[in-house]
Nucleic acid binder design. Structure first.
Lengths: 103, 103
DNA sequence: TGACAATATTAGAAAATAAGAATATACTAA
DNA sequence: TTAGTATATTCTTATTTTCTAATATTGTCA
């Protein structure tokens, strides 16, 4: 009944998708995601950008790492974060379409 | 710096988008959204489909109504729910792309 | 009107999430 | 090795979310 590539979201898949949605559903985390469209950034940059504490950024980054939204790459003293799957940006793009049109 | 239609998600818009994401970020609610791709459905149908109590479905529907994801239409005794903005389905489509590919 | 069916709302308990503070770890450079 | 910088983790508390049970509302039909 479902054409390939358009199969239904069965419960197992629903749960995976929900894990992803929850990972995005926080102002700080979504702001971080948006910032990462420009490319990877280290924790300090994200800290400055979001204006919250080091500990708090780090916790939110950990959340998104755990949910496999982000990947971390250590370079010496610093850790750079990037988005694991670029399709995440398409998702943000649609949110922009819906919530960011200025008319 | 931002081309029109691709402006940055400023905090106000981030918050709106997060409201939307939170509304989707629950297994029952996402399952309901997915079901509504076929068209509007009444509460009973959604109840059977999700296998939870009438009260629980109704509360989740209220959540999505409040966040302006769904619209409700009463027809006599029953209330039919549908998705307010069809672009929500594009969003679900991307989640499918990411989490539902069977290979 | 009264009984019934469909849906909504409320209240309260349990679980999940968030933030700040303190501490720990990893790396660099001297 | 020691000091210093960048990041991560843990703990505690406050808030939010979720579910169940009970009750209320809205509409239909006899």
């Amino acid at each position: 009944m479902n054409s390939p590539g358009m199969q239904a979201l069965d419960m197992e898949k629903i749960v995976k998708a929900v894990r992803c949605l929850k990972a995005l559903a926080h102002p700080l985390r979504l702001a971080i995601l948006c910032a990462l469209r420009e490319g990877e950034k280290n924790v300090q940059e994200l800290e400055g950008l979001t204006g919250t504490s080091q500990s708090n950024v780090s916790q939110h980054l950990a959340t998104m790492r755990d949910k496999e939204i982000l990947i971390a790459r250590r370079d010496g003293n610093q850790v750079f974060y990037g988005v694991r799957d670029a399709r995440m940006f398409q998702l943000i793009g649609i949110l922009q379409e819906i919530y960011c049109k200025t008319e």
